[in-house]
């Protein structure tokens, strides 16, 4: 069984986001980037499935500019067997990404696409679902547990009311939530080996994919600051306010 794992290069989760003073976006120059943490979880899950013998090949895919190669190297250090770089310098929105992933998925005759539930830069939470729709296959989003057997996946999903279980036929798309697993430390020897792997390059044209219509970002602003509220003098006042707001 073959798994595709899509990995995105995003501003590192430790970085405090700075909005540019002219409102044209956030500062990304000279800022640490790393693999989207939810994609790391997806990657880890793929490696665990491979260790269990459920899947035999893990292909990491990324879409973006030259620097995304680092992200593929990280995926290789995790344990991806191959890495495909869909080279595109412009901004890639979810629908275009989904078209590219669907094309790679078909070309590779993959059985499963694992990806993070969302990327921590645009927070869209769309690409996995869109890819499943384009391929007309099943999806299980927000996965917190995955079992694969007999051409089917049983997935526990984190939904608002609790944990939902779905059974889906493969091929399918599974998007990883935070609690699916805890990604391992990358070991230096694995990182060293990953440096020597040949990355396969392609682009949207080669994949026969047309960029989708895009949403235009017209302004980026920092979130409004919280304003100071009221000070109460007594517990009675506080209790009354909480009751009045229907909070207790």
């Amino acid at each position: 069984m073959k798994a595709l794992v899509s990995v995105k290069r995003a501003v590192d989760y430790n970085v405090r986001i700075q909005v540019k003073p002219d409102g044209s976006g956030v500062v990304t120059d000279g800022v640490k980037h790393s693999m989207n943490p939810f994609d790391e979880i997806a990657m880890e899950e793929a490696v665990r499935l491979k260790e269990k013998g459920v899947i035999s090949e893990i292909i990491a895919v990324t879409i973006g500019g030259q620097k995304n190669e680092e992200t593929l190297r990280t995926a290789l250090a995790f344990g991806a067997t191959r890495a495909i770089h869909v080279k595109e310098d412009g901004e890639i929105q979810p629908l275009t990404a989904a078209r590219a992933l669907a094309a790679v998925f078909k070309k590779e005759s993959a059985d499963i696409l694992l990806c993070g539930k969302q990327a921590i830069d645009d927070d869209a939470n769309q690409t996995g679902q869109m890819t499943a729709a384009l391929l007309d296959i099943a999806q299980a989003t927000f996965a917190s547990k995955v079992d694969i057997a007999d051409g089917k996946a049983t997935v526990i999903r984190e939904v608002d009311a609790g944990l939902e279980t779905l059974e889906i036929d493969l091929p399918a798309v599974i998007t990883a939530d935070l609690r699916l697993n805890e990604p391992r430390y990358l070991k230096l020897p694995d990182i060293m080996k990953a440096k020597r792997v040949q990355i396969e390059a392609t682009n949207l044209g080669d994949l026969g994919v047309e960029a989708a219509p895009a949403i235009k970002v017209t302004k980026t602003a920092p979130p409004p600051a919280r304003s100071k509220g009221v000070m109460v003098k007594t517990v009675d006042e506080l209790a009354a306010m909480l009751k009045q707001k229907g909070l207790v």
């Binding site: 679902q129 869109m130 608002d160 989708a212």
Partner: peptide, 21 residues
Amino acid sequence: NALGKDTAPRVAALLGVPQVS
């Protein structure tokens, strides 16, 4: 929420339009 986020992108992809989250 979980249902909306599960469904909306799938709808958008079938319609060939981007989605606003």
